[in-house]
Design a protein around this nucleic acid. Structure first.
Lengths: 224, 224
DNA sequence: ATTATATTGTAAAATATTTTACATTTTTAT
DNA sequence: ATAAAAATGTAAAATATTTTACAATATAAT
C-alpha cells in the first residue's frame, strides 16, 4: 500500500478542470514568501484556503524550545487551511516556507462563493482530505507497530511521498526526532544504519533519499 | 482544544437537511449486524458509503494474532467507506459491529448520483473528513509527545469523544495496548493509576469513563 | 455448581531508549 | 581566513518499557 502513496497523493490543482483553475486564479491573492518565512501562525482564525503554487511548504508545530515538529510537507498544487473554512477551527498548524515559495491565498467567503459555481472544487477537496486521512493513518500505524529503524524509514517515505517534490528532505535531526517522538541520538543512529543500507545519505540539515523506490520496498517488506 | 472535540465531531447525518435525509433513506439498503459481526473486511474493494443508524461500530485492523487495533468508534449518523468512493482505495480497515447495529449501505454509484442532486451531501462529507483529520493529528501528537499515562488518557478521550455514545468503552486491554503501541502490562498499570485518580473505572473487557469532563481537563492541563 | 477459558494484575529480568556529555563536523558571521 | 555558532556522531549511565511468568479474577461452557 505504501507504494501507492505517491500515486494517490494527487495535488488539488491537478484534479481541477481548466475552468475551475481560471476561476481560482482570478480570485486568488498571490503571495511570495522567503525561505523560512512564517506563512501562518497556529491559532490564526481568519478563514481561508491556501494553495502552494511553487516551492515547498512545511506544516507543523513550532514548540517553545524552537523545534519544528513536522506534520507534512506540501508541494505545488497542494492546499492547507481547509479546517478554517469547513470545520470552523482556527489554524491548527504553523506553516513555514521552505525556499522561495509562491502561495495563492483565497479568503474564506470568496472561495465558498466559487464553490457554488464550480462543481469540481469541492469534490477535489474531499479527495485531497480523504487521502490525507489515509496518510495519517499510515503514520499512526508506523508509530505504534514498527521498531525504530522501520519507523524512521516509513516516516521518511510518507513525508517525501506526499510532498511530491524531489528526494531532498531539509530538516534538522532534532526536528525530525521530535516529529517521530524519539530522541535525537536514537534517530541519529537509525539514520546511520539506513545509510549503511544505502537507502539514504545524511547531510548537515538535510537527508537525501538516494533511492526512493528501494526505501519504499525495504519498508514494505517489513511492514505488517 | 481537546474540550472542543465532542462539539466538532458532529455526525454526518446531523449535518444534513431533511430533503437530503429522505433521499438517502430511499436509496439506502438497511443491514442489521449482531454483536461482534464483521461488517467489512479490510481489502474489500466494492465501493460504497456506509452510515451507522443505531448501535456502534468499531473501525480498526484485525491482526493475525487476533488482536483488534482500534482506529475509531463510530456512533449513529457517522460514516465509513469514503475512501472507496473518492480515493479509489479498497477498504483500509476492518469494521466490526459492537452490539446490535443497524447500518445503511449505499452502493457507490447510487450515492454519487445522489450527490449531484442534493447539494449538501458532499460538503457535509468534507466537514466530516476534515474533522477526522484533526482527530488523527491529535492522536499522533499524543503518541509522539506525551508520557504513557497522559497518552493513555488522551487516547481514551479521543476514542470516546468521537463515538459520541456513552462513556463505556468495551475493549480488552490487550487490544487497547496494541492500539496505543505499548505492552499490555504497561497499559494495565497506567489504567490502574487513572483509576486511583478517579478518572476511570476498570472492568473485565471494558473501561468506564467515570467523568468525561474531569478526564478531559486532566489531559488538557498536561498537554503542551 | 463446577470446570474451563479468557482476561487482568503484578513482579523480576532483559532489553531498549533517553539523558547527559562531549568530540567532531559543517555552516555562518565577522 | 578565522572565530563563533549550529548541527551531528557517539558513548556511558540512568531510566523506562518490554518480555516473561504466574497469580488472581471474571466470564463462559458444561
Amino acid at each position: 500500500m505504501l507504494s501507492k502513496l505517491r500515486d494517490i497523493s494527487i495535488p488539488y490543482l491537478d484534479q481541477l478542470v481548466d475552468s475551475d483553475l481560471e476561476a481560482l486564479k482570478a480570485a486568488a491573492i498571490p503571495m511570495r514568501y522567503a525561505d523560512g518565512e512564517l506563512i501562518h501562525n497556529r491559532g490564526d482564525d481568519k478563514p481561508g484556503l491556501s494553495i502552494v503554487r511553487s516551492g515547498l511548504v512545511r506544516v507543523g508545530v513550532i514548540r517553545t524550545d524552537g523545534t519544528f515538529v513536522i506534520t507534512s510537507m506540501l508541494g505545488p498544487g497542494q492546499t492547507f487551511g481547509e479546517f478554517t473554512l469547513f470545520a470552523d477551527l482556527p489554524r491548527t498548524h504553523d506553516i513555514v516556507a521552505q525556499g522561495e515559495t509562491l502561495v495563492w491565498q483565497l479568503p474564506g467567503k470568496r472561495f465558498l462563493r466559487l464553490c457554488e459555481n464550480n462543481s469540481k472544487l469541492l469534490p477535489a477537496l474531499l479527495q485531497t482530505s480523504l487521502v490525507r486521512n489515509y496518510v495519517l493513518l499510515e503514520l499512526i500505524e508506523a508509530m505504534r507497530s514498527l521498531p525504530v529503524l522501520e519507523r524512521v524509514a516509513k516516516t521518511l517515505v510518507i513525508l517525501v511521498a506526499t510532498a511530491r517534490q524531489g528526494n531532498e528532505f531539509y530538516t534538522r535531526q532534532s526536528d525530525l526526532a521530535a516529529t517521530l517522538g524519539m530522541s535525537r541520538p536514537t534517530l541519529s543512529t537509525a539514520l546511520a544504519k539506513l545509510e549503511t543500507l544505502n537507502l539514504i545519505t545524511r547531510g548537515y540539515g538535510r537527508i537525501h533519499i538516494s533511492d526512493y523506490q528501494s526505501l519504499t520496498e525495504w519498508v514494505s517488506a517489513r511492514d505488517s
